[in-house]
């Protein structure tokens, strides 16, 4: 499951689908910079910095109902392969959100 359906529904009820979409767009917009910072910190072996970035990323994802993103970084392991894998997951998650949004608006 890429999305936490209960959480997404709760947020959509609380702020509207439209506003939730705006917040998610901000998340996707800022994500590449966060991933760059993560890769740089990992490259420089800054373990605390890596943990801090991942903590923020996972927290924001949980807050917005992005279950797949939250769980992906649970083991805190960063590598070039994992970063590439994550980018794919991010694209899939955006698509899942679009589909969820379409279903919700069709109701």
């Amino acid at each position: 499951m890429l999305l936490d359906d209960a959480r997404i529904s709760e947020l959509a009820d609380a702020v509207s689908v439209h506003k939730l979409d705006e917040l998610l767009q901000i998340f996707w917009r800022d994500l590449p910079e966060q991933l760059q910072q993560l890769a740089a910190a990992d490259n420089d072996n800054k373990i605390l910095q890596v943990a801090k970035i991942l903590h923020g990323l996972r927290g924001t994802a949980a807050n917005l109902g992005l279950k797949g993103v939250h769980e992906f970084w649970a083991d805190q392991t960063v590598s070039v392969e994992r970063l590439a894998e994550f980018k794919t997951l991010a694209v899939e998650t955006q698509a899942a959100w679009q589909a969820w949004q379409g279903r919700r608006l069709a109701l």
Partner: peptide
């Protein structure tokens, strides 16, 4: 400091 963090709080309270 997180735009999605403050944004979510603001939208919830504004709603």
């Amino acid at each position: 400091d997180e735009p999605t963090g403050w944004g979510l709080l603001k939208e919830i309270l504004a709603a």
